Amino acid sequence: METHRSAIVTGGSAGIGLAIADMLADEGWDLTLVARDPAKLEAAAGMLAVHGTQVQTHPANLADPDAAAQVGLAHLDRFGRLDMLVNNAGIGLVGPIERKTGKQLDLELSLNFKASYIILQSCIAPLKKAAAEHGASYVINVSSMAARENGPNASVYAATKAALVSLSNVAHAELSRSGVHVTALLPGFVDTPGTGWADSGIRDQMFDAADVAEAVRFLVRTSPRCFVPEIMMTTAGPSIWHSPLDWDTAST
Rank of each mutant, 00 (worst) to 15 (best):
A209R: 02
F227C: 01
D204L: 06
H242T: 14
I231R: 01
P238I: 02
F227A: 03
A209F: 06
T235V: 15
A213F: 09
D246F: 07
G237P: 10
R221I: 01
T249G: 13
H242Q: 05
W241I: 07
E230D: 10
F207D: 12
L219V: 08
M233Q: 12
P229D: 07
E214H: 14
M206F: 14
P224V: 02
D204Y: 09
R203C: 11
S239N: 03
H242S: 15
D248R: 04
M233I: 12
M232H: 04
M233G: 10
M233V: 12
D246Q: 04
P244Y: 01
H242L: 01
G237K: 00
C226H: 08
Q205F: 07
A210Y: 04
R203K: 11
E230Y: 10
T235Q: 12
T249V: 07
L219E: 04
P244M: 05
D211T: 09
V212N: 05
E230F: 09
R203W: 13
R221M: 06
P224G: 06
E214Y: 08
P229M: 03
D208Q: 11
W247A: 15
V216C: 06
M206K: 00
S223G: 08
T249R: 06
D246P: 15
P224H: 07
V228G: 02
D204H: 14
P244Q: 01
T235K: 00
R203D: 14
G237S: 03
S223N: 03
P224A: 06
R225Y: 15
A215N: 06
M232R: 01
D204R: 02
S223Q: 02
E214V: 03
F218Y: 15
S243V: 02
R225G: 09
E214T: 11
D208E: 15
V212S: 08
E214N: 14
A215I: 05
R225P: 01
D248F: 13
V216I: 12
F218P: 04
I231P: 07
R203S: 10
W247T: 14
T235L: 02
W247N: 13
W247H: 14
V220M: 12
T235W: 00
V216P: 03
A209W: 04
A213S: 08
F227E: 02
T249E: 14
G201F: 11
I231K: 02
D248Y: 11
L245P: 14
A210F: 05
F218G: 09
V212W: 05
V228H: 03
F218N: 07
V228S: 03
A236C: 03
D248K: 05
V228W: 06
G237M: 00
M233W: 02
F207C: 11
